[in-house]
Each structure stands twice: as C-alpha cells, then as structure tokens.
C-alpha cells in the first residue's frame, strides 16, 4: 500500500520539525496510535486501535525515527502487528520551506501488509491510504492550531529543542533495532 501526500502548514520548517520530533505529537498524528511509549532514542512502542470501515483490530508495534536531517527530512519506520495481519511501514518525510512562513510537508512511503488484510483488503486499500493521509494532516493541522501560542517565540522553540527523552522505565527492547 502506497502512502503519499503533501500539505502546507503555516509554521516555519523548524517549528514543524520540532512538532514532528515530539512523541506526543507523533502519537497524535499517527493514525490509530493512541500512545507512544519511549523505549530508546527516537524509538517508541505503540499501541493502537485501528478502525477503518468494517475492520477493527488492535495493533501493537514499534516506531522509530531514522535518517534525521534536521529540519529537512527524516524517515519513519513502523511495524504494527495484529491478529489479522501486520504492517511494515517506511515513510520518507520531507519538509520544505515555502515563502510566507509556510512549511510544506511531503511524505512518500509504503506499508507492506501481510495476513488477512493483505489477502482480502486490496479492493479498498487505496481508500485506506487516502484516509490515513488525510488523518495525518488534519491531526497535525489541528495540533498546530491548538499550540500556536506556545511556540510563537523563538525562545520556546529553543527550549523545546533541548527536551530530552524521559528516563526509560523498561530496558530497551533489542528487537526494536530489527524494524524495517
């Protein structure tokens, strides 16, 4: 399943980068993900409940952010496992600066599906991809809207940049390195 899309946000490239590096934001915008638990630097465990059309299932998975080139691009790798099939996702995220303080986010990637969803879902996969794409952008848009005030000063941007991941409660799952 190909996932592809682009959208302009009325924030600077740096601001958008900071949002996207925030696990809380990532959790908000990743379709179906209800929370991300940090399990290492740029590595998260995700818990999600996906409901798309007639399909409803719980997924557990891992997400990691790699190949970071601040503030221009990064890659999200995700593995989502469920009873009805798994998704191995790799998405290239690019942020471009446009005139007028606009950041253009473009993503391009694919989700390799397996199991029952791969075997029976073909008919509607392009619809699923569209829904997911829209969800990402609208959630991000919403988040930006809600947080406009808090990131308006350069200072706050700087302060966010220095946020460190919280102390790990669980040891890092070695399997996380095997994603993608």
């Amino acid at each position: 399943m190909v996932v592809k899309g682009n959208h302009d946000f009325k924030v600077s490239r740096e601001q958008l980068w900071i949002y996207l590096m925030d696990p809380i934001v990532l959790a908000k915008i990743t379709p179906g993900v209800s929370r991300l638990e940090i399990i290492g630097e740029d590595k998260f465990k995700s818990v999600s409940e996906i409901k798309i059309g007639p399909v409803k299932a719980s997924f557990t998975g891992k997400l990691k952010v790699v190949d970071k080139d601040q503030p221009a691009s990064f890659v999200i790798k995700m593995e989502q496992l469920s009873r009805i099939g798994n998704a191995h996702v790799s998405v290239q995220m690019n942020i471009e600066e446009k005139e007028g303080g606009i950041a253009a986010l473009a993503f391009d990637g694919k989700a390799d599906l397996s199991g029952v969803i791969a075997r029976t879902g073909q008919r509607v996969l392009s619809g699923v991809a569209n829904v997911i794409t829209r969800e990402v952008f609208s959630a991000l848009e919403k988040h930006i809207e809600e947080n406009k005030q808090t990131v308006e000063s350069e200072e706050s941007i700087q302060s966010m940049k220095t946020i460190k991941p919280p102390e790990l409660e669980d040891p890092i799952d070695p399997a996380i390195n095997s994603i993608g």
């Binding site: 007639p54 409803k56 009805i84 029952v116 029976t120």
Partner: peptide, 14 residues
C-alpha cells in the same frame, strides 16, 4: 450480509 463475512475472517470482533 455485510457484518458476518467480516466476523468470519476475524477482521472485526465486537
């Protein structure tokens, strides 16, 4: 006829 086929494949489990 829409619901039961999804239940049989366990795509949905109310």
């Amino acid at each position: 006829h829409s619901l039961i086929p999804t239940l049989k494949l366990r795509l949905n489990a109310p």
